[in-house]
Design a protein around this nucleic acid. Structure first.
Lengths: 251, 251
DNA sequence: CAATATCGTGCAATTTCGTGCAAGGTCAAG
DNA sequence: CTTGACCTTGCACGAAATTGCACGATATTG
């Protein structure tokens, strides 16, 4: 990883998120916190950012235009994303769903990780453009605007050609009885296809999704191998899944 | 291996990846790191790249950084985009290329226009999410990060299924002799396929593209029916195309 | 005020850089 | 064909940059 490149990335992160946290950056870039701190110090020296305890803020408040939007992402989802990204091993082929949680996964993929990411979400694809070592495969099809993902027969066909290691699935409901559900019929079909295209399916479920159900079934709980949820999720909420030998990770 | 050839390769790598690492390049080209370092030093001397510890970065960040490029959209491109968007009739199926100019087209499509837009650019697809009456068809494939578009065999296959009315094509060069050209081999193939999938191809060419040529041919001038360029483009620059019965629009 | 997290600095290990030099190759004049 | 000037390349070696760790200082939080 090039030092200069890393500094650029830090500035880019800063611009996008309105803030950077030393620890997060060090993890996502695969270097020690010391190095990041040094970078931050030097960038602050050049007046490109403002150093604060724990990380850095933009030097001029005017730049922080995106900040407001990003702060709407709850910490829980960010933590889930970070935990999921950590599971990706070098060389693997993973499928990333659409949705805000999956976006956090993309955002936490280390910049130096060599891997292939398959996605039907243009948002996710764009998120990964700056990862030089991540090959991105975009699934095409008819755009379903509500979720901003490609759906339809063409998408299903394209997915059928893929054999991935892991699928990180976002859902709107996960329930011991009804299994995994989502709010759109077409999208459910695509999620089903994605799940079948991967050896392992891991569900990203912030706590409000646990024990909730939506109109359209995706797959049954028997077909998933893991759930990543928030640190604070009540044990009672996850016990039913643990009984089914599903690995529940608290991020 | 010819020195000049090697330097070209380095610049090409730089453009593709946004960075080069001396060690990687030396390994992939089978020469010592010393040689690569010498090359990098000389290229930096010529101002073709920016030397950094461990490798090199593009001399002007704008060349490789897609985000950077769009920040300075010149008025001409905006006008071209507006003019192109005006050509889209209700009910039509149009193909929008990637690139900054095409993005301006998307941005100027009226919110109440009922139409279908086919694109291989995630950026364009996102741009149209808020148009309730525009159906968006996303072409999938391998992401070519430099241009942020889908390319490859899968993309070509998907395009072959489409029959559109108009294709608004962006190029890096249009020349009376060499026709339409662009800077990447794969991308040229995709543009060719898109052109064949549309009844009409209209080229979006800001004035600096006129009478310029890039390494890879897309199609000949005989296959296009219109060019949209800037208001201020010199008449001498467009006359060759008008003689070929190509409709030149000044936006 | 105490526990914890973060910071800054010194230091050692590693990587990368620049330079001098010798080996080999090209090319043109003799 | 030979010779010599010139260029390119790889290697050696000291210099400089980068990075991670240890440790004490400082800031934050409850």
């Amino acid at each position: 990883m090039l030092t200069t490149h890393r500094k650029q990335q830090i500035l880019s992160l800063l611009k996008r998120n309105g803030q950077v946290i030393a620890k997060d950056v060090s993890q996502s870039m695969g270097v020690s916190e010391d190095t990041i701190r040094r970078d931050l110090r030097e960038l602050a020296q050049e007046g490109l950012l403002q150093r604060v305890h724990g990380g850095a803020l933009p030097s001029s408040p005017a730049i922080a235009d995106f900040a407001g939007r990003e702060q709407l992402t709850p910490d829980g989802k960010i933590a889930i994303g970070r935990a999921a990204a950590k599971m990706i091993q070098p060389g693997q082929v993973v499928i990333l769903d659409g949705g805000t949680t999956a976006r956090q996964v993309a955002r936490h993929i280390p910049l130096d990780l060599k891997a292939t990411v398959v996605t039907h979400s243009p948002t996710i694809a764009l998120e990964l453009v700056n990862h030089p070592d991540v090959e991105v495969i975009l699934i095409g099809g008819r755009m379903f605007k509500h979720s901003v993902v490609a759906v339809g027969a063409v998408a299903i066909e394209a997915i059928a050609q893929i054999h991935a290691d892991t699928y990180f699935m976002g859902v709107t409901g996960i329930h011991p009885k009804t299994g995994l559900t989502t709010g759109d019929y077409e999208e459910a079909a695509v999620k089903r296809a994605l799940s079948h295209a991967a050896a392992e399916t891991i569900v990203l479920a912030s706590s409000e999704k646990l024990n909730a159900a939506s109109p359209y079934a995706v797959i049954s709980l028997a077909e998933i191998s893991g759930i990543i949820t928030e640190q604070g999720a009540a044990a009672a909420l996850t016990r039913p899944y643990e009984k089914l030998k599903i690995v529940v990770t608290r991020a």
